[in-house]
């Protein structure tokens, strides 16, 4: 059985560092896939049903069910904050400033 984790699809080392820091701070497991897939596809691969990926200049958080589009997104430069929101989503905490 897969361990519960949110899936980040990226091979960008700095992006991974920032998103992983957000997940470490929230104590939520993150799994990295060095593949070029959409956030939705990453979410489908996530046992928690939450995935992250970069789409153009944006980092996108998607859910595996209920919606085809982005549940959350923001500029790649805000990867730490978007990562924090995704981790909090998994931990069922208020998402903070990137919830809007």
């Amino acid at each position: 059985m897969s361990a519960p984790a949110v899936v980040l699809a990226s091979a960008d080392a700095e992006l991974i560092r920032l998103v992983a820091a957000a997940f470490e701070e929230e104590a939520v497991p993150l799994q990295i896939l060095a593949e070029s897939i959409s956030a939705r596809a990453a979410a489908v691969r996530s046992p928690l049903g939450i995935g992250l990926a970069v789409d153009g200049a944006e980092i996108v958080v998607a859910l595996s069910t209920g919606t085809d589009g982005a549940y959350l997104k923001g500029p790649v430069g805000d990867a730490r904050l978007i990562g924090r929101a995704a981790a909090r989503l998994a931990a069922r905490r208020p998402l903070g400033e990137f919830a809007a």
Partner: peptide, 13 residues
């Protein structure tokens, strides 16, 4: 249970 997701700003609120 909701059939479409609640808005992100409402989660855990």
């Amino acid at each position: 249970f909701l059939t479409s997701p609640a808005a992100p700003q409402s989660v855990a609120h």
